[in-house]
Design a protein around this nucleic acid. Structure first.
Length: 272
DNA sequence: GTCGATGTTATCAA
DNA sequence: TTTGATAACATCGA
């Protein structure tokens, strides 16, 4: 589900309500989604006030007035929604923070994650210590990207999925960016020249900006914090379009497997 | 009913 | 060291 544009959309829909809200109740329905396993979130969070909420890669960083922080990662199937306390609890709801925002209207921030690949990480004041994420795709320079890609022989598609190389791109936007840049997803990352990396960098920024504008892609069940689906799936040019004609040249979109992930591309447009 | 696929990533072994 | 395979999990559709 959630790659950079979806996570950014969740953060933007959460921020106006959550920033400055006070936490009045903490319910952990499934303890094993919290790391470290014995972090008593109830004790640490109850009564605290949120200072800010930000995105870093695909992670959501919550900062409290005390300066303490925790991270939520949505994994593959996670969603974070704001609901009235009377709204029925969905199956696979693992964690609930009851909040009083500035509006005074009681709300619950709910973390739902059927596949449980996501989770919550308590950081405290450890200054997000072991953040090994790569640069933000919307800010990275072509020179910086080129230098990072030069260090690996993996396929460029696989390299783009590596969060330590660049943070926030997932399966959908890797395929979409490579198509817009006209680059074969199988090409070894270290063989791309300056021109190609420049094209790729522009394609990444363009596709992520338009996806954010469309509030993300909803293929399955992704929704933002207000329960609203995204619209960018309608603008996909290759992802989940196997066999359909390429918008650019009409050749059928092909699907292959690369590093265990389904990969969609146009064999005519994307080659040297 | 079974199989395979699904937007992520930590971990393991070659 | 680097890289690919696998597992963690639930759901859906062929």
């Amino acid at each position: 589900m959630p790659e950079l544009p979806e996570v950014e959309t969740v953060v933007r829909t959460l921020r106006p309500t959550v920033a400055s809200a006070r936490i009045i109740r903490v319910k952990t329905l499934r303890a094993d989604i919290v790391t470290p396993p014995r972090a008593s979130l109830r004790q640490r969070l109850a009564g605290q006030v949120f200072a800010d909420i930000q995105r870093r890669g695909k992670k959501i960083l919550f900062t409290l007035n005390t300066g303490e922080q925790f991270v939520i990662h949505l994994g593959m199937s996670g969603r974070l929604t704001l609901d009235a306390p009377s709204t029925p609890i969905r199956p696979h709801t693992h964690f609930i923070l009851e909040l009083i925002p500035l509006s005074g209207q009681l709300l619950q921030l709910r973390f739902v994650d059927p596949r449980r690949f996501g989770g919550i990480w308590w950081l405290g004041t450890s200054l997000s210590a072991d953040d090994r994420l790569g640069p933000e795709p919307l800010k990275v320079s072509t020179a910086q990207l080129k230098a990072r890609l030069a260090k690996t022989r993996r396929a460029i598609k696989t390299a783009l999925l590596d969060q330590q190389l660049i943070a926030g791109i997932g399966n959908i936007y890797a395929d979409e960016a490579l198509h817009r840049a006209g680059i074969d997803p199988r090409a070894a990352a270290c063989t791309l020249d300056n021109i190609e990396v420049g094209r790729l960098n522009r394609a990444i920024k363009q596709v992520l900006h338009s996806a954010i504008k469309s509030r993300g892609s909803s293929l399955r069940d992704y929704v933002d914090a207000n329960g609203l689906a995204g619209g960018f799936q309608k603008l996909h040019r290759v992802y989940a379009r196997t066999g359909q004609p390429c918008d650019h040249c009409g050749a059928p979109i092909q699907r292959i497997t690369l590093a265990g992930r389904s990969t969609h591309f146009c064999p005519a447009c994307q080659h040297r």
